[in-house]
């Protein structure tokens, strides 16, 4: 197994010590930065798919995402120096009134793992805050998460606020256990995912629409 394959494998199983060491070795030995990045994002793609197929669960996903995050910290200065920036920027938060953020945090990790720049607004985020952050960070993706059926209806207000703020290029991706395609269509969201495993795919799909 070459070093990049080993890096991919280490992230997939959440072995952060090995992953960080391999990322550092790759950077220091001058391996092409994009290749290193590709090895890392490829790992998270596999993790997301395995999660969706119920081959792994939230714990495995969390530890893989931590290994990814720490490896990425090694690579980031090199990426900045090389002028390699994430192609897309997302702002993400849980909907107003909803304080449950495990899912949102996982999605943020998965998006970062797919080399999407992520601005995390935290929990209990109002439509106005989503709009302001999207404008400030020139986001092309807004991610809204809800765990409760009580709060998920408020997602519609975020879609309306973004449309009224004249941000036509922003794609709204909603997610959370109770979220359905029917609901996403009904409120005019551009994409949806019921779990973090499908969140990267949902963004890709929404951006292509």
């Amino acid at each position: 197994m070459d070093d990049l394959s080993a890096l991919t494998a280490a992230i997939e199983v959440g072995d952060r010590t090995t992953a960080v060491a391999l990322a550092r070795a790759a950077v220091e030995s001058g391996v092409d930065t994009r290749e290193v990045l590709g090895a890392m994002t490829g790992a998270m793609e596999v993790v997301g798919k395995r999660f969706q197929c119920n081959e792994i669960y939230v714990p495995e996903m969390l530890i893989a995402a931590r290994a990814m995050k720490e490896s990425m910290a090694v690579l980031e200065p090199v990426l900045v120096k090389a002028g390699i920036r994430p192609e897309h920027t997302a702002v993400i938060g849980t909907i107003k009134g909803d304080l449950h953020d495990i899912g949102k945090n996982l999605v943020a990790m998965m998006w970062k793992g797919a080399n999407i720049g992520v601005v995390d607004l935290g929990t209990d985020v109002s439509p106005e805050q989503f709009v302001a952050a999207a404008q400030e960070h020139h986001a092309d993706i807004v991610g809204v998460s809800a765990l409760l059926t009580t709060t998920m209806v408020g997602m519609k207000d975020v879609v309306v606020a973004l449309r009224e703020a004249d941000l036509p290029d922003v794609r709204v991706v909603i997610g959370g256990a109770p979220v359905t395609r029917e609901f996403a269509d009904q409120i005019g969201a551009d994409g949806f995912a019921t779990d973090a495993g499908g969140a990267v795919e949902a963004v890709k799909h929404a951006l292509a629409s």
Binding site: G14, P59, L62, I63, R66, D101, I102, N105
Partner: peptide
Amino acid sequence: EYIEKYGEDNAAYLMEMLGAWRSHY
């Protein structure tokens, strides 16, 4: 169960992540 499956370090991290909701109440 997490310690057995993922080791002490990962288990501590998982418990922290999965219990973090309490700080919001």
